[in-house]
Amino acid sequence: MKPDERTLQEIEKELLKTKEELNLQRWGLEKTNEAIKTLYRELEKKNEELRALDKLKSDFVNTVSHELRTPLTTIREVIAQMSEGILGPTSEEQKKFLAVCLEDVDRLKRIIDNLLDLAKLESGKAEFTQEEVDVVDIATHVIASFRSAADAKKTELQGRYSAKKAVANADKDKITQVFVNLIGNALKFTENGRIEVMVNDGPDSIECAVSDTGRGIAAEDLPKVFGKFQQFGTADGPRENGTGLGLSIVKYIVELHQGKVRVESKTGRGTTFSFTIKKIPRG
């Protein structure tokens, strides 16, 4: 009996010790739990703050857009009415300068539009619709819209397509903008030359390219062409009436479609911009 009793006592002691240890562990766990709860609350708060900031950023873009466009509207309209003679007789000399004003107001408007497009693309706030689009059809339409501008610069503008159709799930307006920006760009730097627009349909993606025989881009400038407000060619020609944002927008749009954009160029020989549009399954 004695040894058993001692054992019982020992067991009781051990149990007490275990209980104490468990209590200690429980206390520790409770503390950890509290810490996690605090952390969770802090994260929630941070999350809320981030959401508010995100909304502020998006509201800011909309507000800036509105605030910049409104005064521009009045300025543009007064200039237009003055040159039309609605506000009284205007001399030919005055009309010439008013036309210059109008040109620059429109340029300012394009810069605002492009900056806002870019801000939306960068913040992931761009409205992105996915529908079945025929890239050959888009290219054909954009080429047609540039026809008279190409004729004015005595430049041949033609499309070369591997098939009658090249269909992908993409945002039609945005892909159109890519062609407009690239062809518009090519035309700016090409005179008495040739611009070719290529669309090659592939199994997983559509390969597109806009090639020109224009003045080309210097090798040291090539890595910078997709940067913002980069305008080249000031050394051998006047500054073009661009916004310096067109190619940044192209890059963003192409990447939004999980594609890649590339540029190859030789000074005096011409430039080729190529990009891919991945055939994303509809989702």
Binding site: N62, S65, R69, T70, L72, E127, D173
Partner: peptide, 23 residues
């Protein structure tokens, strides 16, 4: 002066006959 496609859609939705952006 708001030029978002969504604004234009809402405009059509409430029965506007035309939508013109400023400038």
């Amino acid at each position: 002066a708001r030029a978002q496609a969504a604004d234009k859609q809402t405009g059509t939705h409430v029965g506007a006959d035309a939508y013109i952006t400023k400038p």
